[in-house]
Design a protein around this nucleic acid. Structure first.
Ligand SMILES: [Zn+2]
Ligand SMILES: [Zn+2]
Ligand SMILES: [Zn+2]
Ligand SMILES: [Zn+2]
Lengths: 138, 138
DNA sequence: ATACGATCTCTAGTGACTAGAGGTTCAAGA
DNA sequence: TCTTGAACCTCTAGTCACTAGAGATCGTAT
């Protein structure tokens, strides 16, 4: 049995975030001391580690709630878990694609200015004013 | 002179977003009709196009405000504009790097599950429970 | 017994919008 | 000129995943 601060230290999840997860329904409300302080056990620690890892991989709170729900039904098909992971992967890939397009344009834009001129002639400002200078869509 | 709806159509920025930009100080408050409706001119259109383009490239409202301020002083050095663009490029690159690490782990995780088993044996759920299965940090 | 760090609840703020309520104005057609 | 209805107005609240702070209480070590 350990306090919320101890749980925080063991998982690298901040105390207010742990309370937020409880309020959001991701974490079960733990036991309390007589003085109303939360006390966790190994199950709580494992659960929070799962949540932390999933958040680090970019899953939304909603997706994590669904995954936790699945975990609670060990004999159900895991198709939905697979769907959630696949959707997350697609999402990440879409973000990468978009960011790569931005990277190309930004590299071009920042290369066009050495920071030595005046703003009137600045290629950064000119580029932002005119998408026609961009080499592709973004 | 045209309405906010017309400005919205020409820039592909939604009407409430235009009002939000005005409230945030990015757009000057335009003239109003006797009945209190906003009326824009070419200058407003140009300004909003600039903002839209910068937002599409991922610049924050705050950065855009700084860039607009620089635009208003044509004879000042453009070093700051260059700094802002460079910082944005670094930011995008850092995001790409992180997302690529996530992509690798997520690809491994979702490949390890074909969605045919039960959740008890699911590699997706096992991987989320145990960061030790990950091949690298993320 | 006292001190003091940790914990409690509650409210509000972040960024960049988006949605909705309830009311007013504009412009086109009759 | 009148009427209709789309477009406009302001204001509040909601989104996501936290983060910050106030003010009060608790737990534990000395
Ligand atoms: Zn420059
Ligand atoms: Zn562009
Ligand atoms: Zn599976
Ligand atoms: Zn991992």
């Amino acid at each position: 049995m350990f306090s919320i601060g101890e749980l925080s230290r063991r998982t690298n999840v901040k105390v207010p975030t742990i309370r937020y997860y409880e309020e959001s329904g991701l974490l079960d409300a733990p036991e309390r001391t007589e003085g109303n302080q939360r006390r966790y056990d190994a199950v709580g620690l494992e659960r929070l580690s799962f949540i932390k890892h999933a958040r680090d991989l970019g899953f939304s709170i909603e997706a994590i709630a669904a995954l936790i729900d699945l975990q609670g039904h060990p004999d159900r098909s895991c198709a939905e878990a697979n769907d959630i992971a696949t959707a997350q992967l697609s999402d990440v890939r879409a973000k990468i694609k978009r960011l790569r397009a931005l990277e190309k344009e930004l590299a071009r834009i920042s290369k066009g200015c050495d920071g030595d001129g005046v703003t009137e002639d600045c290629y950064v400002l000119a580029s932002l004013s005119d998408h026609g200078l961009c080499e592709r869509e973004h």
